[in-house]
Design a protein around this nucleic acid. Sequence first.
DNA 1: ATCCTCGGATCGTAAAAGAT
DNA 2: TCTTTTACGATCCGAGGATT
Length: 675
Amino acid sequence: MMPAVADDTNEHSSASTKPLLRRACDCCRKRKVKCDGGEPCGPCKKASIQCAYLQPPKKKGPKGLRSARVLHALRTIGDNASSGPQRPLSPEQHGAFGNWGWDQHSVLPNGVQSYPHQAARPQQDVYGPHTSVPRQQNYYQQMPTSMTHPQPTQQSYYSNDSRAQTWSNQPDSVSTGSDIPRVLSPTGSEALPPRLPSDSFFPYIRLFYDHMFSIMPIIDRNIYLDPAIYTNASQASSDVYCFLCSICAATIVQLDESIPQPAPLQPGRRTDDLFADECLRERKTFDYIESASTLSIMTSFFLFAYYGNHEKHSKAWHYLQESITSAENLNMDDESSYAKLDPIEAQWRRRLYWLLFITERAYAVQRRKHTRLHASVQLPSVFDSEDPQLLNGFVNLANLFSAVDDNFVRAWRGSRKQSLCNEAWLAQTQEQLDKAALALGNITETQHLDISVTREWLHVLAWQMGVSNGLIWGRGEGGMRLDYPIELARKVVEITSGANALALDSHGIGMEQKLSDIAGCLADVLRCTAGDTSSTFLEGKQYLNILLQRLSTMRGKESRYLKPLMSKMEGLLGYDLDAEALPLPSALPTTYPSQSHQQMPNNFLQTPRLSMADSVGMLRTLSMSGNLGMPSLSVLPMEDWEQRRPSGKVYNEDETAEAIDAWYLSQGGGVAQAV
DNA sequence: ATCCTCGGATCGTAAAAGAT
DNA sequence: TCTTTTACGATCCGAGGATT
């Protein structure tokens, strides 16, 4: 499938017709010059540029249903005709999505749809179809050659065209055809601080695609994995530059030490901080709010990821909200707005919207915040996407979080009426969580881990809500049993035990938080049932042990949640907080669930038994104090945990301890009656 | 004179549409 | 199922602009 030439035997064919090379290097492709296929190739050697063959070949042939595309083209023509001016299909509409967008030459053979002329090509072509590299370069060419920023004359040039960075278009500018001038850069022409060198970005973008793209499939690899577009990155427009800085900052801190990273850009300074500072500095030089685009939404989003991973939660939440606000400004929460867009553009926007949705739900639950976005727009397409397997996973995750509805969030924040947080509702919620993410067969491991662990984590949260509302002694529907967290922990151990560490680590601190939440909840249950020697609870201790082991090596180092958890565990597992490392790191069963329960670590302490009623009482006390599932407050800053887990639960008080014990015995739980 | 950019001709491949 | 049509990715020629 590679050869572009018929009778190309191996290297160079001696056929009479001009021999096309089977593959040109990335730079020659960009430069549109003949490549000799060498490493480095002749033209690259001559030009003293880095020769590489990184860009993967794209799939050829038509994509999607032809008839649908024709329909869209006709519709677009109709829209343009009725909405007046001259404005051809906006470049944004061709935009960011590589060549599965419309072919700009073929949409309208009469030329009405084609770009008028080169000079009017918008800068946003950076995101244009892959094959139109020249236009990307053209875009960069508009920038001054020195390390200063665009001059006023250039601004006026830009402001007269519709600034097509790929996704930057505002729907209203499409529908009204009004080209609102946008100020892109500072009005002054004074020299500005130098930017980061152009070659700073690409290594991190590659890391992003290798390890994070499957959970954030929002930028086109055909565009951003092309090293050539970074050749002038330091002179890109401000919003592009900010975006690149933010995604690099987020990637570095999210992957952290789980994978070897390129050498620091500046000695003695964290590169993620450098990127983030650059992004923030550059943002002050232009009105990024007024010129909001999908690009600026993503910039805010990656700033969120950067701060979130650094546990700077006020800033993280701020930037997440900023990205959501920008999305609302672009009407991305309005389904009807997508109909006006090119189908491909619409698909990318849907992805971005749902990523914001998922992230907001997850983060809001973790930090007990309110949510603003709703499942109000259609999910992105799976089968028509460039990677159905990947999109399948993404959509699964979106479905899972759709089960975390407003009631869930309100109940979790403690602002839902007690009467509404009843057993039936919780049972239904738990059921929905399982139903929402069923088809996990054909997805990547990274996504599988995310969905599976998130699902169990949400189960844990729902269970804690039940406890807080006095539902623990029910019939066990919706898992409202005392030992339910042990079952959930078992699943999590099964999910993570065989997992590729890097696939787990690529979820950043969010995964650490979820695992620590699950472990914390399990620890509470074990503490409250201390002394119980039934197999279920001994099993639970082993699961806890394994989860702690996991946390001890997250992202190349010990998770910051480990010590708090261990201090909480003091006396329960026999661990000493001051111990230099967890015991048995290598002796842990890697295929744990198949192991028998006999081989318990001998350092489990036998502590006095509690009755079932005592256990439930303790759990309720913990939930009242807002301490349920939380590691000891003595290790993490108090306000940090309080922010994460404020209390505020309500629950009934009228069940008797006898009834509880009787129920539990009937479940075969085996908790001892009394000390 | 040399270098560089980039429109577009051309080709091969693969998917959609049509014929049987 | 087979054939035809169409879309699209890819290479790279060569005109024309920029630079030395």
